[in-house]
Amino acid sequence: MKLAIQVNEGPYTHQAADTAYKFVEAALEKGHEIYRIFFYHDGVNNGTRLTTPPQDDRNIVARWSALAEKHNIDLVICVAAAQRRGIADADEAKRNSKDADNIAPGFRISGLGQLIEAGIQSDRLVVFGD
């Protein structure tokens, strides 16, 4: 089955990103397709490569990147939400005259239309938030 995921909260403060990850992992193991994971609200903070958790803790951001690389998953960060919260890729940084970008590997920044499109194209949309 084709599944789309929406993550509404950032890493560490809320469990949403952890639950979403465990859910996606289980879905992939069962042979389902992850059509897209859309990061909205503070969920955009799942995509900053500057995250540095303690060594004995999980690295939520790196975990998403690894999953995306291994299974070719589309990780989309909402551009409007990202601009508010200071998440930028090279293009965004340039467009908004910022001195750096911080997007993690495997993520891309795009519009809210990607969420609606995921809802249309997938068989199920599951929202994780708080």
């Binding site: 809210l112 239309g113 969420l115 609606i116 249309i120």
Partner: peptide, 8 residues
């Protein structure tokens, strides 16, 4: 989201 989604 509602505003952007309306285009669909």
């Amino acid at each position: 989201v509602v505003l952007i989604g309306a285009a669909f």
